[in-house]
């Protein structure tokens, strides 16, 4: 068995050069997904190690948004005052991803890169209308997360691109943000259903809403039909409208962790609860 090649770039430019030269290498950060059961997986031809690449770290205010470096860990996100104050659902999601050891290594860029239907931060990114900044030697671009994941674990990332950062626009002041994960157990669990919502309220009336859900389709999805159904309604009416509209807006499967019927019902309950806490 030949030894894989290994590179640990010290700048984004170097990382992009390496990525362009070796699009078949494993892109590795915290390893919490890619290294699971690694002794039984195919050995990669090379490893491009982005772990602790300084330029991919950090959380910063950028005008009317915050920017989270792709290499930021869940522990860093959960603890950061900018996230805790302005984007609490993301901090809450971070705190429910795996347990402490996973949170110390898992990165937001890794969650986005894999874009599993059960990636816990992804519904939050949808609800917060996040943009993903990606780059290659050809240049950089921004993709809204709703356009980023294009199928089951399929993304818009080109073979020579890297995820650089996540941009979260600061919501207007009257926005309510909520998050709930239903996992296989109370901690260190895979989600059966999870979702996040942001809603702009005028008094008790819903002006607009964004709802992201995970584990209810082949990818994390926005529930646009539900979002439209609740506009102009009081919170209590919105809850009932959402409960009625959710089942048709999702396509959950039955697997060893749960059933489609359960997922459909719980998704409806959760979204209803987002409006009527």
């Amino acid at each position: 068995m030949s030894e894989p090649l290994y590179a640990r770039p010290t700048s984004v430019a170097e990382a992009l050069e390496l990525r362009a030269a070796h699009p078949d290498w494993m892109l590795l950060a915290g390893g919490t997904d890619l290294l699971v059961d690694s002794n039984h997986r195919k050995v990669p031809v090379g490893m491009l190690d982005l772990w602790r690449l300084a330029a991919l770290g950090g959380i910063r205010q950028r005008d009317a948004a915050i920017e989270i470096g792709a290499g930021t860990t869940w522990l860093e996100i959960e603890r950061h005052p900018l996230v805790r104050v302005g984007f609490l659902p993301l901090a809450e999601a971070a705190r429910e991803i795996g347990a402490r050891q996973i949170q110390a290594r898992g990165t937001i860029g890794g969650n986005i890169g894999t874009s599993s239907p059960v990636g816990d931060s992804l519904p939050v990114l949808l609800a917060l209308d996040a943009e993903i900044e990606v780059a290659s030697v050809r240049g950089s671009r921004r993709v809204p997360y709703r356009d980023y994941c294009v199928g089951y674990r399929k993304t818009a990332l080109a073979a020579d691109e890297l995820i650089i950062a996540v941009h979260l626009p600061t919501p207007v002041a009257s926005t309510r943000m909520v998050w709930r994960k239903v996992g296989t157990r109370k901690a260190q669990s895979i989600s059966k259903v999870m979702g996040a919502a942001t809603m702009v309220l005028d008094g008790g009336t819903v002006v607009s809403a964004r709802i992201g859900m995970g584990a209810v389709a082949d990818r994390p999805i926005r529930l646009t039909a539900v979002e439209q159904a609740v506009v102009g309604l009081s919170l209590l009416q919105a809850a009932e409208a959402a409960r009625a509209a959710v089942p048709a807006a999702i396509a959950p499967i039955s697997d060893i962790r749960s059933t489609s019927d359960y997922r459909r019902a719980v998704a409806a309950n959760l979204v209803a609860r987002f409006f009527a806490v």
Partner: peptide, 23 residues
């Protein structure tokens, strides 16, 4: 323990779960 066609379908600790401290 979930069997499928006589085989354990959840043969890992991610899916064959036991209580954690939090449970």
């Amino acid at each position: 323990v979930i069997y499928k066609d006589g085989k354990v379908a959840n043969a890992n600790m991610t899916n064959c779960i036991v209580p954690t401290f939090a449970d």
